[in-house]
């Protein structure tokens, strides 16, 4: 892993980092990836994954909605910028 790759990943992750940080992250990632890479060669017994998993995705019933608007103020107040009943962002197009 080199500095340029790290800068590209940071861009994908929408994080601004300095060139120096990218350089040192590249070194740290080398060591971490070497360590985690040890599982690549590990042999696993085939499990087939047939057993029923204990945890399943549970969707709640689409019923009993809360009264419209009761959380609006609290949530909008948490936004860095708001305009009336909307969260305000810069022009995109």
């Amino acid at each position: 892993m080199n500095k340029e790759e790290v800068l590209k990943l940071a861009k994908l992750a929408r994080i601004e980092i300095s060139s120096e940080e990218a350089e040192s992250l590249a070194h740290e990632f080398e060591a971490i990836l070497k360590y985690v890479g040890e599982i690549k060669g590990a042999r696993l017994k085939g499990t087939g994954g047939k057993e029923k998993p204990l945890l399943r995705n549970v969707m709640r019933e689409d019923v009993n909605p809360h009264e419209s608007g009761i959380y609006t103020e609290a949530l909008l107040n948490a936004a860095p910028k708001r305009k009336g009943q909307y969260v305000s962002v810069k022009k995109i197009l």
Partner: peptide, 14 residues
């Protein structure tokens, strides 16, 4: 984000 958070987000992206 601090240094460790940045490190883990970027590693996760990789």
């Amino acid at each position: 984000f601090g240094r460790e958070a940045r490190r883990r987000i970027i590693l996760g992206t990789y």
